[in-house]
């Protein structure tokens, strides 16, 4: 089974700083592979006996050689990229359109696997938009995959039920993170990564902003510290109330 895995490069959230006016400073944040995509790459590496190709669309962050080697050190055979500063902040629809071009470049395939969502926005839209662009069936929230010839037997976890679904390939699925624990890339995988094929693909797609960002601010800091210093009934009731509030009870 040949599998394609679209992945997103995001900024390390721990490095994003909140300024005094609650605006966000991304200048020190390094690019990294979105966490949930690591699970998608892992399950693809486990069942992709005929090759695993990673695809990514994005801006300058995709030029980072370490990020590219990181993707290729996770059981991936080849990497297809569309990298353009105009694609820095594509919406889900445009991302899916650009990914559809990369899918064409990657040739024949049996299955496309996506992560649960991106670690930065978690919009969970690119999977369905890509299925629409490629006119393929899609199954989301997949927690287990069994391959039977050209058919996939999938388990789908929903809030109140578990569904068992069969689908013919080619198809698109998006997975829940529990499906597979990402491998820890060893030195052999890391050294091999730099020697694997990386294809840069340009597209004619024009990046347009479908939405305007009005403001992007961190939530206001809520002062949660309280000092309750005596053991009177009132203070104890106040203490119990504070605990309940902190625990959202």
């Amino acid at each position: 089974m040949k599998i394609l895995v679209p992945v997103k490069i995001v900024l390390e959230s721990e490095d994003i700083q909140i300024k005094g006016d609650r605006s966000l400073d991304f200048s020190k944040a390094k690019p990294k592979l979105s966490d949930y995509d690591c699970n998608a790459l892992e399950i693809a590496a486990q069942i992709g006996d005929n090759g695993v190709y990673a695809l990514s669309v994005g801006g300058e962050a995709l030029k980072d050689s370490k990020v590219k080697k990181n993707i290729l050190s996770r059981g991936v055979d080849e990497l297809f990229l569309t990298c353009d500063s105009a694609y820095e902040d594509l919406d889900a629809y445009q991302t899916a359109q650009a990914l559809a071009k990369l899918v064409e470049e990657a040739g024949e395939y049996d299955l496309i696997i996506l992560g649960d969502g991106s670690a930065d926005r978690m919009a969970q839209q690119v999977d369905v938009q890509l299925a629409y662009a490629l006119n393929l069936p899609i199954v989301t929230a997949v927690s287990h995959i069994e391959v039977e010839g050209s058919k996939l037997k999938l388990t789908r976890i929903l809030e109140d039920s578990i569904q068992n679904i069969e689908v013919e390939t080619p198809a698109i699925i998006s997975i829940v993170p529990d499906i597979a624990e990402p491998r820890i890339a060893g030195m052999k995988d890391i050294l091999a990564a730099g020697k694997k094929p990386m294809h840069e693909v340009t597209t004619e797609l024009e990046a347009t902003q479908s939405a305007e960002t009005v403001s992007n601010l961190a939530p206001e800091q809520v002062q949660r510290q309280q000092n309750i210093k005596d053991a009177s009934d009132e203070s104890i009731a106040e203490f119990a109330q504070a605990l309940k509030q902190a625990a959202n009870l």
Partner: peptide
Amino acid sequence: TDEQELLIESIEEFCSR
């Protein structure tokens, strides 16, 4: 090098696991 930095990330992941 990229490889040394990736090695450190893998070690960090290994130790936290």
